[in-house]
């Protein structure tokens, strides 16, 4: 039938593109990962080899701390901004969401301006105490960079949920004598959970795979994406880079998938 053929035509470009440039390359990547000197065991090199394992642990811890901090800051800011009308609100929201468009490299550079050798914090501390405080190139600098990168995204997600929260729920809880913390625990946070799962998972996945910020800050710590990059370009060890890539991709994909199913269950269970 005519419309059946048209449906096929609609999806054809998508099918061709996805097969040629996504499915095929990912299959090739998997093949490459299994063709190193260790064979199939190459897939697990990220946990079997101490250098990679340490890097994985550092990256995981950094990503988890970033996620927790981002969620905390974004949840507080979202609640402060939701349902509050004041002059310049639109402008403030724009400024808070601007960094959405900044690539990791730019964020890295901004962190350098903030806490690098010629940075703002350093020059302030120098004039106050005489010591130039430099943290941009440390793990803390990397953390700040990730925070900078993630907060706008997560803030937008949670703000959307916070604005949908019925204010009479909070008023009802107050009429029943609940303290601000009890209201948070029992009313507000449960309503924000789906958005927090989604935003948190996105934040975690981005932090795990972030490359630009680490690249610009040229930190002494090797996060996983830097490891992939150096394995591939400097050590020209394609199969090792592929194996780590797949492990990393699997972790980020799983984080997002778990969060999505939890968020869905929360929404449907409510």
């Amino acid at each position: 039938m005519d419309s059946r053929r048209f449906d096929l035509l609609l999806i054809l470009p998508l099918a061709i593109f996805t097969l040629a440039f996504l499915v095929l390359p990912l299959a090739r990547l998997t093949l490459e990962a299994g063709s190193g000197p260790q064979g199939i065991a190459g897939f697990f090199v990220i946990v079997t080899e101490a250098r990679f394992r340490n890097s994985l642990i550092v990256t995981l811890i950094l990503s988890i701390i970033t996620t927790v901090a981002t969620l905390a800051v974004a949840t507080v800011a979202a609640q402060t901004l939701a349902n509050r009308r004041f002059f310049g609100r639109g402008l403030l929201l724009s400024m808070l969401t601007f960094p959405l468009a900044f690539p990791g490299v730019v964020v890295g550079f901004l962190i350098i301006l903030f806490g690098g050798r010629l940075g703002l914090v350093g020059s302030v501390t120098k004039s106050l105490t005489g010591t130039n405080v430099v943290f941009a190139y440390s793990l803390f600098g990397l953390f700040l960079g990730y925070l900078y990168f993630s907060v706008p995204r997560v803030l937008l997600t949670i703000l959307a949920a916070a604005e949908k929260l019925d204010p009479s729920l909070v008023e009802a809880a107050r009429s029943l004598g609940a303290s601000p913390l009890a209201i948070q625990r029992d009313v507000v946070l449960p309503a924000l959970f789906p958005a927090m799962y989604t935003g948190g998972a996105l934040c975690f996945a981005t932090a795990m795979g972030a490359f630009g910020t680490a690249f610009t800050l040229a930190t002494t710590v090797d996060v996983i994406p830097m490891l992939i990059y150096t394995e591939f370009t400097l050590a020209t060890n394609a199969s090792m880079a592929a194996a780590i890539s797949i492990a990393l991709g699997f972790i980020t994909w799983a984080a997002l998938a778990i969060a999505r199913s939890r968020a869905m269950r929360d929404v449907s269970g409510a």
């Binding site: 999806i11 998508l14 996805t18 440039f21 996504l22 499915v23 095929l24 390359p25 990912l26 090739r28 990547l29 490459e32 996945a205 795990m208 795979g209 972030a210 490359f211 994406p225 992939i228 990059y229 591939f232 394609a238 880079a241 592929a242 890539s245 797949i246 990393l248 991709g249 980020t252 994909w253 997002l256 998938a257």
Partner: peptide, 23 residues
């Protein structure tokens, strides 16, 4: 299909680039 098409959001760009270069 949507899940597959959305993979590049979840999978780090570095891994995708590597896959493209290898292919």
């Amino acid at each position: 299909v949507e899940e597959i098409v959305t993979l590049p959001v979840a999978v780090p760009g570095l891994a995708l680039a590597l896959a493209m270069i290898l292919t």
